[in-house]
Amino acid sequence: MPKERIRAYAWEIPVRLTHWINFVCIVALIVTGFYIGNPYAHAYSSSQYIMGWIRFVHFTAAYFFLMSLVIRIYWAFAGNRYASWRVWLLLTKQQWQDFWGALKFYLFLSKHPPCAVGHTAIAGFTYFFVFILFGWQILSGFALHSLTHTGPLWFYLGGWLTGMMHMQTIRLYHHMATYVIISFAVAHVYIAWYLTLKERNGLMGSIFDGYKFVTGKEWE
């Protein structure tokens, strides 16, 4: 039987809110993005507006996604210690130790699951790259968007990139990054589910209500 657990508040509202806004936006962006990349459904009449709507959804979701990321980055400085930007990096010796410990666990080299109130060191470090990836999608997406939207807003959000990188290259990597995001999402959900089972710490639930169930060892 698992030992007695302490209910710990890990994810504050902005973290949970932005997580689910991101989730909805990313699903919408992937579905519509793949249609833009390869329009599999064809219209039977010219009065339809399939690509038009698909692009509209892609761009609307893009703005929500951008705002969500802005809020999350703000919270990395304003939020609690589990939301801090510090957990995204391996800054301390402790973080390195946790990192190797967690890695060993995932590779079946150790039977001690990583335990942390917030992200484990591996998760935190992964999110660092994931947020860079999100940033790239936004930058490259707005760079493509700036081809038709020439105002200063779109220039600063991404248009400047077209002066340094060929449009086709931007498009290619915008497209390719989509697969990396899909791969992350699959692995991420699997790991969340796996750790929930393994650790019994309510990880899956925590991203809904904010609470994790920890043993108390985390603070030692």
């Binding site: 329009p39 459904a41 064809h42 009449s45 339809q48 690509m51 038009g52």
Partner: peptide, 9 residues
Amino acid sequence: RAHFDAGQY
């Protein structure tokens, strides 16, 4: 372009 927006390729 109208065919692009409609989804006719």
